[in-house]
Design a protein around this nucleic acid. Structure first.
Length: 457
DNA sequence: CCAGACGTTGTT
DNA sequence: GTCTGG
DNA sequence: CCAGACGTTGTT
DNA sequence: GTCTGG
């Protein structure tokens, strides 16, 4: 669960909404797109606005302004200057704001630092799919996919890959809501549902972040990534799924505690924050078109069985009829659909850019698709146009009409024991125990990204 | 000592 | 990075 | 998370 | 079925 969500707002909107909820933002990226307004070519690392936000995209994270090593004092000093000559005073850092000391484990809400100053918070663009700081080189997609979520019960255990992040690098991931696929017919049919707060506020997922500099890459190239913590579903969602992301209440003490850099060791108090959501949710089926990555439409967060969608379908038929008149009625139909949506949702208005055939909302965001036929069966989705170039979201450095890479894989993969050409691959051992915990399947997987560190002994 | 895992979901 | 298994 | 591919030879 | 891409 929580492998797809919606965040289609501009940073400025997010900032405003958070501040309205008593979540100050002291620092944020300049603006959404390094590309020109209305472009779909996001600057590298810029957050993507999408109603169909997928793993590997850059999203918006809210966190305390702490250094790259996280909250609390810097540790492992030895590791920091291994090579290149130990220059004096080579902090790397990231956002200078935070030296908090071990002093304050009990500031209640976490509003204040031991030195009396208020904790500073920042919005930051990070990539979904956590890559730990000790990772040597960009992991393949499969590995990253497995760190888009982090189970709350994994955090309850000592050690493991989350150890440093849970103590020092907690964050909140900002969303408008998330998707969940309900399986029917024994899994033959999957119906996407959208889940959002009933009060319409932004949804704040509990998350963890990290930053890594890959071997041989420049110091300016830091990779910030995040994961979303999951827990058991609440009652409202149990019909859909047994897990859900941890949703922290906007502006609450719980949220401030979660982000508090004064708490730089894991504790029962922090663990206790990871509970099923207690507020009210809206849950409803949405267009199947959201299943296809790359599709993007505001209709994805509108109930399938809603007036807007019916209007939209009606408009489709009206447009089809009007087509004979040679008009552009279809586009007008879309326009009115999006306008209707705005009225009710107070989302950005959508308009059509006729000359280019792209769809934009009024924040100047070009949607990832545009221009093609509406589909009566699905109702509303605009599909088809390929993405425009340059962003580093997603996994691939894409080249020419891409084939799957035999040789590529070899060249980027540290060679190891017999990868069995025919496709044989180590499998995960089946887990068999009665507990509801995952029983930590020991797997003989391929993990070839580990950095080597000399250990003294 | 070194080598290798470290993760999630879902489905069987 | 830390921990486990050999 | 879901959708969609799942191939080769030869050349750079 | 398994893997990749988004």
């Amino acid at each position: 669960m929580c492998g797809r969500y919606a965040i289609a707002l501009r940073l400025a909107q997010v900032r405003q909404l958070l501040e309205d909820d008593d979540m100050p933002v002291d620092e944020a990226p300049d603006e959404n797109d390094g590309g020109e307004a209305g472009g779909n070519n996001y600057a590298p690392g810029a957050p993507r606005q999408s109603y169909n936000f997928a793993p590997g995209y850059h999203g918006i994270v809210y966190r305390a302004d702490v250094p790259d090593w996280g909250a609390g004092p810097r540790r492992n000093r030895a590791a920091a200057h291994d090579r290149g000559g130990a220059a004096p005073g080579d902090d790397d850092e990231g956002g200078d704001g935070g030296d908090q000391h071990s002093g304050g484990a009990e500031e209640g809400s976490g509003r204040r630092r031991p030195d009396g100053g208020r904790t500073r918070y920042k919005l930051q663009s990070m990539k979904w799919g956590l890559v730990p700081f000790w990772t040597k080189r960009g992991p393949d997609y499969g590995s990253v996919l497995k760190t888009i979520n982090c189970r709350d019960d994994s955090l309850a255990q000592a050690g493991g890959m989350w150890a440093s992040m849970k103590a020092r690098k907690r964050c909140v991931v900002v969303a408008q809501g998330f998707y969940e696929w309900l399986k029917k017919d024994g899994g033959r049919e999957k119906i996407p549902h959208f889940v959002k707060r009933k009060d319409g506020k932004l949804m704040c997922f509990a998350g963890l972040w990290d930053v890594v500099q890959y071997e041989g890459e420049d110091e300016s190239r830091k990779n910030y990534t995040y994961t979303i913590i999951t827990t058991e579903s609440n009652k409202q969602l149990s019909f859909l799924h047994d897990r859900m992301p941890v949703v922290l209440e906007n502006g609450s003490d719980a949220l401030r505690t979660w982000l508090d850099p004064g708490r730089h060791e894991w504790s029962a108090e922090l663990q206790a924050l990871l509970r099923p959501f207690e507020g009210e949710l809206d849950v409803y089926p949405v267009s199947k078109e959201v299943g296809k990555v790359g599709n993007n439409s505001p209709s994805f967060i509108i109930p399938l069985d809603s007036k807007e969608n019916k209007n939209n379908i009606a408009n489709f038929f009206a447009a089809a009829a009007a087509k004979k008149d040679g008009g552009s009625a279809k586009k007008e139909g879309q326009s009115s659909f999006f306008a209707a949506k705005k009225r009710e949702e107070e989302q950005p208005e959508i308009r059509i850019k006729n000359d280019e055939g792209f769809v934009e909302d009024d924040s100047g965001v070009r949607l990832e698709d545009g221009g093609k036929e509406l589909n009566a069966g699905q109702g509303e989705t605009i599909t088809g146009v390929k993405r425009q170039a340059a962003d580093d979201d997603g996994a691939a450095e894409r080249g020419p009409p891409k084939k799957r890479a035999h040789s590529t894989k070899v060249s980027t993969t540290k060679s190891h024991t017999s990868p069995a050409k025919g496709g044989g691959r180590p499998k995960i051992s089946a887990t068999s125990n009665g507990t509801k915990n995952p029983a930590k399947p020991k797997q003989a997987g391929t993990q070839k990204i580990t950095k080597f560190f000399a250990n003294s002994s």
